[in-house]
């Protein structure tokens, strides 16, 4: 699977559409093969809106310029994190374009906060 198969995929629970995958949360706690651990998929971030103009505001501490931040936060209100374990099937994205991709969640899955804790500031080039 490539990540584009997941991003923008439509998300369903029991046939009912909940929204779209706007991002994929990863944690660097997978097998260590080099200097960095391989990123493990923690879960999917799901918004009722597609991710065209998300720009990261919803999930990080960035809140300026306030006008843009508030608008985007409002557009993406209700965005939640669903854990990878709660993903029942990922499909449709194999041969076709990602627009047809579809993610089915387990019935009774849990919604978690999409917020991303502020970690590390500017890493200088």
């Amino acid at each position: 699977m490539i990540l584009s198969d997941l991003v923008d995929a439509a998300v369903y629970e029991d046939g009912r559409q909940l929204g779209f995958v706007v991002d994929v949360r990863l944690a660097l706690d997978g097998p260590v093969t080099g200097l960095m651990a391989a990123p493990r998929i923690v879960g999917l971030l799901v918004s009722a809106r597609t991710s065209t103009s998300f720009m990261g505001y919803e999930r990080t501490g960035t809140n300026a310029p306030a006008v843009i931040a508030r608008y985007l936060a409002y557009r993406h209100r209700g965005t939640f994190l669903v854990l990878w374990e709660d993903v029942r099937t990922v499909g449709g994205g194999d041969a076709a374009g990602s627009a047809d991709a579809r993610v089915e969640l387990r019935p009774g899955f849990r919604r978690w906060s999409a917020a991303l804790e502020q970690h590390g500031t500017a890493s200088q080039a």
């Binding site: 720009m55 990080t60 500031t121």
Partner: peptide, 25 residues
Amino acid sequence: ILLVANDREYMGDQVNGRVLNGFAL
């Protein structure tokens, strides 16, 4: 440019101030 100039991951403490953001908008 405006978005990244407000992003602490890129800019650390050197993010835009409120006045600058106001004019930029």
